[in-house]
Amino acid sequence: MVRIGQTEVAYELRRSAAVSERRITVTPGHVEVLALTTDDDAEIDAFLNRKRQWLFNTLRELETTTAKRAVVPRFMTGSKIPFRGRNARLTVRHHDGAHVEIDYRNGFLVDLPSWVRADDQGGIVATEIKLWLKRRVRRDVMEIAATYRKRFDLKPRTIRVTDMKTGWGACGPTGSILINWTLVFAPKAVLEYVVVHELAHLKVRSHGPEFWAYLATLLPGYERPKGWLDTHQGSLDAGFLAAGT
């Protein structure tokens, strides 16, 4: 318990050998203090004393923001973010660090520093999540492509993950492949299907029977992820992009 004026604030203390500095993270109704494994009670008390004003301001801002919101908006705690075919819960926290940090652990965790104003939170969280999603899908695409390059000697000239106004992927005449980044909202098996589909075009350019037979040798059972994409392609990215990112 830490006292701020006439108010006592309960907090959860967690120690970690993996961190090099102490941290406070605040969400509505919960305060977590992350301490070093070597910290004694006096060091933790001194740290909390130094952060007393920051903690007070952050708690007051959260209370004000929560009171103004009749419903949970997009990109705030409680929102649902589409990711790999399901909706993942978003938790927005406030911490005493200098940078916006984002992680995924059975849901999205976004830590905002104190310089982020309440009115700007939604936009900043949306931007950070979009960047994280793009990095994640690029990593996934490169891993999938590397697997099939090794197994089947399929070597595209280049492979890029990008915004595509139409289509989910493309294989150019020189062997350059494009993949639509919004496939991050589909199950990973669907992303794999699209990547392998475009890799197959390195050997067979058309969409005739020869192509589908060859694709089946690369990815047996491709019909299932293809069917999922055919069914959901009209609304795959709507839940995220319609929120104003």
Rank of each mutant, 00 (worst) to 15 (best):
E32T: 14
V31N: 00
N87K: 08
D111E: 11
H94M: 06
N57L: 13
P82N: 03
F56K: 14
M76P: 02
R93V: 04
L131M: 02
S114E: 12
T65K: 14
F108E: 04
G29Q: 06
T37V: 15
F75H: 00
E61G: 07
M76F: 12
R136M: 14
F108L: 05
R89L: 09
E32R: 13
R138V: 09
N106V: 00
V110S: 06
E101G: 11
N57C: 10
L62R: 06
P156D: 12
F152T: 02
K51Q: 14
T77K: 05
G107A: 00
R60Q: 03
K130F: 05
R89E: 10
V92E: 05
D41V: 08
A126V: 06
F75I: 01
T27W: 00
P28Y: 01
V125Q: 05
F75A: 06
L133I: 11
Q121C: 14
A42N: 08
R105E: 07
E101S: 11
T65S: 15
R117G: 09
V33I: 11
L36Y: 08
D103S: 05
R89P: 04
A145L: 11
R60Y: 06
T25L: 03
T158V: 02
A46E: 09
V26F: 07
A126P: 00
G107N: 10
V137F: 03
G97Y: 03
I124G: 04
I81N: 02
E61W: 07
E63G: 15
W115A: 02
A70M: 12
N106C: 13
D103M: 02
D96A: 10
I81W: 03
D140E: 12
L59I: 10
L112E: 10
K80R: 15
R84G: 07
E43L: 13
V71F: 13
D39W: 12
G122K: 07
Y104W: 10
L154H: 07
R60N: 06
N106S: 14
N49Q: 15
T38L: 09
G107S: 12
W132C: 11
I44E: 09
R157P: 00
L131D: 07
Q121I: 15
A35M: 06
P156A: 13
R105W: 06
E63V: 15
T27Q: 08
A126I: 05
E32Y: 01
R86W: 08
A35Y: 01
E63C: 08
N87W: 08
F47H: 13
I144K: 02
V100N: 07
I44C: 10
V31S: 08
V71Q: 13
A126K: 04
H30T: 05
L62V: 05
T64I: 14
E101N: 07
L48C: 12
Y148V: 01
V72R: 00
V116T: 10
I159R: 04
T27G: 09
A98R: 09
L131F: 04
G107Y: 10
R50W: 08
L154N: 04
P156T: 13
F56H: 15
Y148E: 01
T64P: 02
